[in-house]
Amino acid sequence: MVELEVPLSVFLEGREVVVYVENYLNKPSGDRIEKVCLQFLNEGYRKLILDFRETELVNSIGVSFLLGIIDACERHGSELVLTNLNENVFNLFELLGITKRVKVDFIEDESSTRDLH
């Protein structure tokens, strides 16, 4: 059983972990997610999935923490997947070039799922 350093919703399945991003990805929530992700990477988890289903807005400080997680995954040789992004968040990541660095599962609605990577 992993004891999280910060309170956050996660789902563990084998060596994969799903981290649920909060409604507003900003400095405090970004900091929390980065800490948790680093914790899982250090504990040997090979795949991290960031689930954005609850995330409505993202700011540039939140993005900076996401970039930190991407860098960390690359260092650890782990896979990072962003999933359930709404269109707004996806467009933002695309504008900042994040979608070129990381696999993104983009779900427009419940019935359609497409792999954009």
């Binding site: 540039s60 900076s64 970039l67 933002l92 900042l96």
Partner: peptide, 8 residues
């Protein structure tokens, strides 16, 4: 990691 605001 920082300074993306104006680009956005």
């Amino acid at each position: 990691r920082r300074g993306w605001g104006l680009k956005l």
